[in-house]
Amino acid sequence: MSTPPADRGSTTVAERAVRRIAERAATEALAPGEVRVHRGSAAVRGRRARVGVAVTLPYPAVLDEAGERVRSHVADRTAGLTGLAVPSARVRVRELRVRERAEGTGTLAPKEASQEVPGGGRARRPWSQRRLPVAVLAFVGAALCGLFLYDVVSVHAAGRSPARWRTRLMEWLATHGPDSGAWPGAAIAAAVFLLGVVLLVVAVTPGRRRLLPVAGPDAGIHAVIDRSSVASLLRDAVAEVPGVTRVRVRVGRRRARVRAGLGFGSPATARRAVADTARETLAACGLARPLRLKVRVRTEPAWRAPAPSAAKSTPVAAGSMPRSADEPTP
């Protein structure tokens, strides 16, 4: 009597194999070498699978068309090779690679972005134009100069007497100067001095402290990224580390601080995983000046220690000895 096919057994495709297939399929979606896969994910539930890949696409290219080609190819190829139903694939474009013309041909080839700007220099922060402060200062200065000019022209051209406010102002300044010993003159002089220092600092500093320069592939390309965007990337990447339940990220101009809460697992292992993931994410951002990373992992109040090994969980009873294979069973 033969066994029915349904009762002969089942074939299970591991999530790791599905992830590897999806990553391989993403590299085949466009021309060879144009798609670069950073990380893939897969979740298998019965006969259905959900896959996702983070990729680097060539530039220039129409992102929606290139992303749709990668998504459809990954879904179809994974379903065909695994036999699972893959409704769709999630594609995340993490960065772009600029194409350069190959020597002797008219084709464009992808070029890796370097961390340093060509010429040996470093990418600098964008210089803030500070349009609003300059406009306010120019308006106030122009109004005061126009008021004084009107009074002087009216005195010399029309023969009118000086304005009373200008006469009183000149008399007050003559009697309350910095050398007169009166505190109002000294206070005004100190305020003018501090205002000059502030204007000098504003003039020689770039501003835009929320932006971080990105190393461009060409000297004519200047790219920046907001610090909040870097913090979001770090937060999303660290949140995927097993055992991490809470993530707080703070990105400054020179350093990045990551604080993670651990719900289960070994704290030392989790800290290494969080540090490695954060370093990989910062490296993928392509910053012109790498940030100093500081990682802190703390256990949550409901933290569970890792399960003991099998050898420790089944101790040998007192007074019992392991039985030899040749010894007869009583």
Rank of each mutant, 00 (worst) to 15 (best):
T3L: 14
P5K: 04
D7F: 13
T11N: 06
E15Q: 14
I21F: 09
R24Y: 06
A25Y: 06
A29Q: 07
P32W: 06
P32N: 04
R48F: 03
V53P: 12
A54Q: 15
L57K: 05
L57P: 07
Y59C: 02
L63C: 00
L63V: 15
D64C: 00
S72H: 07
H73N: 12
R77E: 15
L81Y: 03
A85M: 07
P87K: 05
V91F: 05
E95M: 03
L96N: 10
L108C: 03
A109D: 05
P110E: 09
P110D: 09
E116T: 04
P118N: 02
A123N: 00
W127I: 14
S128M: 00
P133F: 07
L137E: 12
V140L: 14
A142D: 05
A142Q: 06
L147K: 04
F148T: 06
Y150D: 08
D151Y: 01
A163F: 08
A163P: 10
L169A: 14
L173M: 11
T175S: 14
P178K: 04
A187T: 13
I188P: 01
A189L: 15
T205V: 13
L211I: 04
L211F: 02
I221F: 07
A223D: 03
V224F: 12
V224M: 00
D236A: 13
V241N: 06
V247D: 08
V251G: 10
R255V: 06
G261T: 02
G261M: 01
L262Y: 13
A270C: 03
R271E: 14
R272I: 07
V274A: 11
A275S: 14
A275N: 09
A278N: 01
T281R: 09
A283Q: 13
C285H: 01
P290L: 11
P290N: 04
L293I: 08
K294E: 15
R296N: 04
R296Q: 05
V297E: 02
R298N: 10
R298V: 09
R298G: 06
T299F: 00
A305W: 02
A305M: 07
P315I: 11
A318K: 11
P322L: 12
P328E: 10
P330I: 02
